[in-house]
Write a protein that binds this DNA or RNA. Sequence first.
DNA 1: GTACTTGTTGAACG
DNA 2: TCGTTCAACAAGTA
Length: 295
Amino acid sequence: MPELPEVETIVRDLNKQTKNLRIKKFEIVNKLPGRVHSPVNLPENLFKRKIIGKKIKKVSRRAKIILFDLHDSYLLIHLKMTGQLVYKRSAAGVSKVIAGGHPIIGVDLKLPNKFTRAIFTFNNKANLFFNDVRRFGWLKLLERGEWQNQLKSMGTEPLSRDFTLNRFGEILSRKGGATIKQALMDQKYLAGIGNIYADESLFLAGVKPSRRVKFLKKEEIKRVHQAVIRVLKKAIKYRGTSFSDYLDPAGNRGNFIKYLKVYGRKDEKCKRCGSLIKKIKLGGRGAHWCGKCQK
DNA sequence: GTACTTGTTGAACG
DNA sequence: TCGTTCAACAAGTA
């Protein structure tokens, strides 16, 4: 489930590999018969016409969105929960693959496969495969102005300079009645934090996810602010949680899963104090925490 | 077979 | 008009 650190990792890799490449070909594959549902925001032919021939200026990230700068327009990719991007280049019998996003279970490395929804081909003959098991992800082509418009309504980037303690305080003051976890995950205010990093940040801060924002002490707000930044940075350092090394013989792997303290560890022992990790539903999502370490 | 999971969207609600 | 809540989306996994 790519959140900010996973998307950031993909973006850094893709920027290295695809910067200055030109899109030669684009195909939508595995369309479901009898369904309107499409991964792109324009009629297929129009979408194709608009991106073929475009050169990639750079690849960057905003929130959980992957952003291909095509000079006069932007290609946005959202992986949602199970999206995956795989860049593959074969030259002189050696094939180079980088992948990011949802890990594929098992060892079926065939590309394209039954989960592939779109394929880009670049002028260096490399391919970029957009795979998505649950088909929630999307590709959008936006004109510069459209994107700039959308930017305005997006939340603060937690790793940017804008995310000061003051700014965090402002955000929280507008979410007074909500729980701290729900506040952290509200993309309108803070961009890029999903279920995993919300739970992990709150563990590091020692604050229970179910606490109401308006009852948090100044000191606790400060700790949460710090924790969010530290957890995200550390996760990026380890290339995210939902990465897998299944494709990369060089050993690039998403290691953060080893450092998860609470997420997905229901009824397991807290790594700090040994008591059992609890799980409840909060706003329709699972929330994990340690009853002893988090107050 | 059923419950559960995920991030965003859009509808319904107050 | 606004913020909040919740079902819907899809399909693999337990």
